[in-house]
Amino acid sequence: MSAPFLIGEAMTGGYGSGADILHDCTIAVEDGEIAVIVGPNGAGKSTAMKAVFGMLNLRSGSVRLGGEDITALKPQERVAKGMAFVPQTNNIFTSMTVEENLEMGAFLRRDDIAKTIEQIYELFPILRDKRRQAAGELSGGQRQQVAVGRALMTRPRVLMLDEPTAGVSPIVMDELFDRIIEVARTGISILMVEQNARQALAIAHKGYVLVQGANAFTGTGAELLADDNVRRSFLGG
Protein backbone atom coordinates (compact mmCIF):
# COMPACT_ATOMS: atom_id res chain seq x y z
CA MET A 1 0.00 0.00 0.00
CA SER A 2 1.16 3.53 -0.71
CA ALA A 3 1.87 5.86 2.20
CA PRO A 4 -0.88 8.31 3.30
CA PHE A 5 -0.66 11.81 1.86
CA LEU A 6 -0.10 13.28 5.34
CA ILE A 7 0.98 11.25 8.35
CA GLY A 8 2.17 11.99 11.85
CA GLU A 9 3.63 8.63 12.74
CA ALA A 10 4.39 7.26 16.22
CA MET A 11 4.43 10.79 17.64
CA THR A 12 5.56 11.20 21.26
CA GLY A 13 5.99 14.66 22.74
CA GLY A 14 4.58 17.63 24.60
CA TYR A 15 4.96 21.37 25.02
CA GLY A 16 8.39 22.75 25.85
CA SER A 17 10.13 20.73 28.54
CA GLY A 18 6.82 19.51 30.02
CA ALA A 19 5.56 15.96 30.27
CA ASP A 20 4.67 14.02 27.14
CA ILE A 21 1.04 14.45 26.08
CA LEU A 22 1.23 12.22 23.01
CA HIS A 23 2.35 8.63 23.34
CA ASP A 24 3.25 6.78 20.13
CA CYS A 25 0.28 8.46 18.43
CA THR A 26 -0.31 8.06 14.69
CA ILE A 27 -2.67 10.28 12.66
CA ALA A 28 -2.95 10.18 8.87
CA VAL A 29 -5.15 11.49 6.08
CA GLU A 30 -5.31 10.38 2.48
CA ASP A 31 -5.35 12.70 -0.51
CA GLY A 32 -8.74 14.41 -0.81
CA GLU A 33 -10.27 12.61 2.17
CA ILE A 34 -11.61 13.67 5.57
CA ALA A 35 -9.94 12.34 8.72
CA VAL A 36 -11.45 13.13 12.12
CA ILE A 37 -9.81 12.98 15.56
CA VAL A 38 -12.26 12.43 18.44
CA GLY A 39 -12.04 11.42 22.08
CA PRO A 40 -12.78 12.65 25.60
CA ASN A 41 -11.65 16.01 26.98
CA GLY A 42 -7.93 16.00 27.67
CA ALA A 43 -7.28 13.12 25.27
CA GLY A 44 -4.64 15.06 23.33
CA LYS A 45 -6.75 15.64 20.21
CA SER A 46 -5.71 19.23 19.57
CA THR A 47 -2.16 18.43 20.66
CA ALA A 48 -1.97 15.71 17.99
CA MET A 49 -3.15 18.18 15.38
CA LYS A 50 -0.63 20.80 16.52
CA ALA A 51 2.14 18.19 16.46
CA VAL A 52 1.37 17.44 12.83
CA PHE A 53 1.54 21.18 12.12
CA GLY A 54 4.86 21.59 13.93
CA MET A 55 3.62 23.55 16.96
CA LEU A 56 5.27 21.35 19.57
CA ASN A 57 8.46 19.35 19.84
CA LEU A 58 8.35 15.66 19.05
CA ARG A 59 10.68 13.56 21.14
CA SER A 60 10.15 10.67 18.76
CA GLY A 61 8.16 9.98 15.64
CA SER A 62 7.93 11.83 12.35
CA VAL A 63 5.63 13.84 10.10
CA ARG A 64 5.56 13.31 6.33
CA LEU A 65 3.68 15.21 3.65
CA GLY A 66 3.48 13.75 0.18
CA GLY A 67 6.31 11.38 1.09
CA GLU A 68 8.60 14.21 2.27
CA ASP A 69 9.83 14.23 5.87
CA ILE A 70 8.79 17.62 7.28
CA THR A 71 9.40 16.82 10.96
CA ALA A 72 12.02 19.55 11.33
CA LEU A 73 10.05 22.27 9.54
CA LYS A 74 8.51 25.22 11.39
CA PRO A 75 4.76 25.87 11.01
CA GLN A 76 5.27 28.72 8.54
CA GLU A 77 7.47 26.45 6.44
CA ARG A 78 4.71 23.84 6.46
CA VAL A 79 2.27 26.48 5.22
CA ALA A 80 4.58 27.04 2.26
CA LYS A 81 4.48 23.27 1.64
CA GLY A 82 0.68 23.33 1.40
CA MET A 83 -0.66 22.97 4.94
CA ALA A 84 -3.25 25.33 6.45
CA PHE A 85 -4.30 25.35 10.10
CA VAL A 86 -7.45 26.94 11.58
CA PRO A 87 -7.25 27.16 15.40
CA GLN A 88 -10.38 26.90 17.53
CA THR A 89 -10.22 30.47 18.87
CA ASN A 90 -8.66 33.79 17.86
CA ASN A 91 -8.79 32.66 14.24
CA ILE A 92 -9.91 35.90 12.55
CA PHE A 93 -8.92 39.58 12.55
CA THR A 94 -12.02 41.03 14.18
CA SER A 95 -11.38 44.69 13.27
CA MET A 96 -10.81 43.90 9.59
CA THR A 97 -13.57 43.35 7.04
CA VAL A 98 -14.40 39.88 5.79
CA GLU A 99 -12.63 40.56 2.50
CA GLU A 100 -9.56 41.97 4.24
CA ASN A 101 -9.39 38.76 6.29
CA LEU A 102 -9.42 36.73 3.09
CA GLU A 103 -6.73 38.93 1.57
CA MET A 104 -4.58 38.37 4.67
CA GLY A 105 -4.78 34.64 3.98
CA ALA A 106 -2.94 35.16 0.71
CA PHE A 107 0.16 36.68 2.30
CA LEU A 108 2.48 34.11 0.72
CA ARG A 109 1.05 34.48 -2.77
CA ARG A 110 2.39 36.73 -5.50
CA ASP A 111 -0.28 36.00 -8.11
CA ASP A 112 -3.81 37.31 -8.70
CA ILE A 113 -5.99 36.22 -5.76
CA ALA A 114 -9.32 37.42 -7.18
CA LYS A 115 -10.29 34.00 -8.54
CA THR A 116 -9.66 32.32 -5.18
CA ILE A 117 -11.73 34.94 -3.34
CA GLU A 118 -14.57 34.32 -5.81
CA GLN A 119 -14.34 30.56 -5.17
CA ILE A 120 -14.62 31.19 -1.44
CA TYR A 121 -17.66 33.42 -1.93
CA GLU A 122 -19.23 30.61 -3.97
CA LEU A 123 -18.49 28.15 -1.16
CA PHE A 124 -19.71 30.55 1.58
CA PRO A 125 -22.31 32.85 -0.05
CA ILE A 126 -23.00 34.72 3.19
CA LEU A 127 -19.42 36.03 3.13
CA ARG A 128 -20.05 37.75 -0.17
CA ASP A 129 -22.99 39.57 1.42
CA LYS A 130 -20.88 40.51 4.46
CA ARG A 131 -17.60 41.21 2.64
CA ARG A 132 -17.47 44.89 3.66
CA GLN A 133 -18.49 44.19 7.27
CA ALA A 134 -16.05 43.90 10.17
CA ALA A 135 -15.49 40.20 10.84
CA GLY A 136 -15.91 40.77 14.58
CA GLU A 137 -19.56 41.71 14.02
CA LEU A 138 -20.45 38.32 12.52
CA SER A 139 -22.12 35.37 14.21
CA GLY A 140 -20.02 32.47 15.48
CA GLY A 141 -20.80 30.32 12.47
CA GLN A 142 -20.01 33.14 10.05
CA ARG A 143 -16.72 33.81 11.80
CA GLN A 144 -15.78 30.16 11.31
CA GLN A 145 -16.55 30.49 7.62
CA VAL A 146 -14.21 33.51 7.47
CA ALA A 147 -11.49 31.52 9.25
CA VAL A 148 -11.83 28.55 6.90
CA GLY A 149 -12.01 30.86 3.89
CA ARG A 150 -8.86 32.66 4.93
CA ALA A 151 -7.04 29.34 5.28
CA LEU A 152 -8.22 28.30 1.81
CA MET A 153 -6.69 31.48 0.38
CA THR A 154 -3.29 29.78 0.68
CA ARG A 155 -4.58 27.13 -1.77
CA PRO A 156 -3.58 24.35 0.64
CA ARG A 157 -3.21 20.68 -0.07
CA VAL A 158 -4.24 19.91 3.53
CA LEU A 159 -6.73 21.89 5.61
CA MET A 160 -6.50 21.33 9.38
CA LEU A 161 -9.46 22.38 11.54
CA ASP A 162 -9.43 22.46 15.35
CA GLU A 163 -13.02 22.19 16.67
CA PRO A 164 -14.63 24.04 13.73
CA THR A 165 -18.17 23.68 15.12
CA ALA A 166 -17.42 24.64 18.74
CA GLY A 167 -20.13 26.90 20.14
CA VAL A 168 -22.39 26.97 17.08
CA SER A 169 -25.97 25.78 16.79
CA PRO A 170 -26.81 22.32 15.38
CA ILE A 171 -28.13 23.93 12.19
CA VAL A 172 -24.91 25.89 11.69
CA MET A 173 -22.88 22.78 12.54
CA ASP A 174 -24.61 20.82 9.78
CA GLU A 175 -23.99 23.66 7.33
CA LEU A 176 -20.29 23.83 8.23
CA PHE A 177 -19.94 20.08 7.81
CA ASP A 178 -21.60 20.34 4.38
CA ARG A 179 -19.06 22.98 3.37
CA ILE A 180 -16.18 20.84 4.68
CA ILE A 181 -17.41 17.97 2.49
CA GLU A 182 -17.45 20.36 -0.49
CA VAL A 183 -13.86 21.41 0.22
CA ALA A 184 -12.74 17.77 0.33
CA ARG A 185 -14.46 17.14 -3.01
CA THR A 186 -12.12 19.70 -4.60
CA GLY A 187 -9.21 17.37 -3.72
CA ILE A 188 -8.06 19.06 -0.51
CA SER A 189 -7.35 16.70 2.39
CA ILE A 190 -9.13 17.58 5.64
CA LEU A 191 -7.77 16.75 9.11
CA MET A 192 -10.20 17.80 11.81
CA VAL A 193 -10.53 17.66 15.60
CA GLU A 194 -14.16 17.56 16.72
CA GLN A 195 -16.12 17.33 19.98
CA ASN A 196 -19.31 16.54 18.05
CA ALA A 197 -17.96 13.05 17.47
CA ARG A 198 -21.02 11.29 16.09
CA GLN A 199 -21.71 13.96 13.47
CA ALA A 200 -18.04 14.25 12.53
CA LEU A 201 -17.55 10.51 12.10
CA ALA A 202 -20.62 10.44 9.85
CA ILE A 203 -18.72 12.50 7.24
CA ALA A 204 -15.26 11.00 7.86
CA HIS A 205 -13.42 8.61 5.60
CA LYS A 206 -11.13 7.82 8.55
CA GLY A 207 -11.56 8.30 12.28
CA TYR A 208 -9.13 8.26 15.19
CA VAL A 209 -10.27 7.91 18.80
CA LEU A 210 -7.57 9.14 21.17
CA VAL A 211 -7.38 8.41 24.90
CA GLN A 212 -4.63 9.94 27.04
CA GLY A 213 -2.60 10.88 23.98
CA ALA A 214 -2.60 7.42 22.42
CA ASN A 215 -4.59 5.69 19.69
CA ALA A 216 -7.50 3.77 21.20
CA PHE A 217 -9.57 3.01 18.09
CA THR A 218 -8.92 3.59 14.38
CA GLY A 219 -11.19 2.84 11.44
CA THR A 220 -13.46 4.33 8.84
CA GLY A 221 -16.08 6.72 10.16
CA ALA A 222 -18.76 4.09 9.54
CA GLU A 223 -16.76 1.38 11.34
CA LEU A 224 -16.28 3.53 14.44
CA LEU A 225 -19.96 4.54 14.50
CA ALA A 226 -20.89 0.85 14.38
CA ASP A 227 -18.37 -0.23 17.06
CA ASP A 228 -20.16 -1.00 20.33
CA ASN A 229 -17.15 -0.06 22.44
CA VAL A 230 -16.72 3.28 20.70
CA ARG A 231 -20.44 4.05 20.89
CA ARG A 232 -20.70 3.14 24.54
CA SER A 233 -17.52 4.92 25.66
CA PHE A 234 -17.40 8.00 23.45
CA LEU A 235 -20.70 8.53 21.62
CA GLY A 236 -23.21 8.25 24.41
CA GLY A 237 -24.40 4.72 23.66
Rank of each mutant, 00 (worst) to 15 (best):
Gly105Glu: 03
Gly105Thr: 04
Gly105Ser: 04
Ala106Met: 10
Leu108Asn: 07
Leu108Lys: 06
Arg109Met: 11
Arg110Lys: 15
Arg110Asp: 14
Asp111Val: 02
Asp111Trp: 02
Asp111Ile: 01
Asp111Gly: 02
Asp111Glu: 13
Asp112Lys: 02
Asp112Tyr: 02
Ala114Phe: 01
Ala114Met: 03
Ala114Asn: 12
Ala114Tyr: 01
Lys115Asn: 13
Thr116Cys: 12
Thr116Pro: 03
Ile117Arg: 09
Ile117Pro: 02
Glu118Trp: 03
Glu118Leu: 08
Gln119Met: 14
Gln119Pro: 00
Gln119His: 14
Ile120Tyr: 07
Ile120Asp: 05
Ile120Thr: 12
Ile120Leu: 14
Tyr121Ile: 11
Leu123Gly: 08
Leu123Met: 14
Leu123Gln: 11
Leu123Cys: 10
Phe124Gln: 07
Pro125Phe: 12
Pro125Asp: 11
Pro125Thr: 13
Leu127Asn: 10
Leu127Glu: 07
Leu127Thr: 07
Arg128Met: 12
Arg128Thr: 08
Asp129Ile: 11
Asp129Glu: 15
Asp129Asn: 13
Asp129Lys: 14
Lys130Thr: 07
Lys130Phe: 14
Arg131Gly: 09
Arg131Asp: 10
Arg131Cys: 10
Arg132Ala: 13
Arg132Glu: 10
Gln133Gly: 04
Gln133Tyr: 08
Gln133Val: 15
Ala134Met: 15
Ala134Asp: 12
Ala134Ile: 08
Ala135Cys: 11
Ala135Gln: 09
Gly136Trp: 13
Glu137Ala: 15
Glu137Pro: 00
Leu138Asn: 04
Ser139Thr: 05
Ser139Val: 04
Ser139Met: 03
Ser139Asp: 01
Gly140Asp: 03
Gly140Ala: 02
Gly140Tyr: 03
Gly140Pro: 04
Gly140Phe: 03
Gly140Gln: 03
Gly141Leu: 12
Gln142Arg: 11
Gln142Ser: 11
Gln142Thr: 14
Gln142Ala: 10
Gln142Glu: 15
Arg143Glu: 11
Arg143Cys: 07
Gln144His: 06
Gln145Ser: 06
Gln145Ile: 00
Gln145Pro: 01
Gln145Cys: 05
Val146Ser: 12
Val146Glu: 11
Val146Pro: 13
Val146Thr: 12
Ala147Leu: 08
Ala147Glu: 11
Ala147Lys: 08
Val148Asn: 06
Val148Gln: 07
Val148Ile: 15
Val148Arg: 05
Gly149Pro: 12
Gly149Leu: 10
Arg150Ile: 06
Arg150Lys: 11
Ala151Arg: 01
Ala151His: 01
Ala151Phe: 03
Ala151Met: 02
Leu152Cys: 08
Leu152Met: 14
Leu152Tyr: 05
Met153Glu: 07
Met153Leu: 07
Met153Ala: 07
Thr154Cys: 09
Thr154Leu: 14
Thr154Trp: 02
Arg155Pro: 00
Arg155Thr: 12
Arg155Val: 05
Val158Glu: 00
Val158Arg: 01
Val158Met: 02
Val158Gly: 01
Leu159Phe: 02
Leu159Gln: 04
Met160Thr: 00
Met160Val: 07
Met160Asp: 00
Met160Gly: 00
Leu161Ile: 00
Asp162Trp: 04
Asp162Ser: 05
Glu163Ser: 09
Glu163Lys: 07
Pro164Val: 06
Pro164Ile: 05
Pro164Trp: 05
Pro164Arg: 05
Thr165Pro: 04
Thr165Ile: 10
Thr165Cys: 13
Thr165Tyr: 03
Ala166Tyr: 02
Ala166Gly: 01
Ala166Val: 06
Ala166Leu: 11
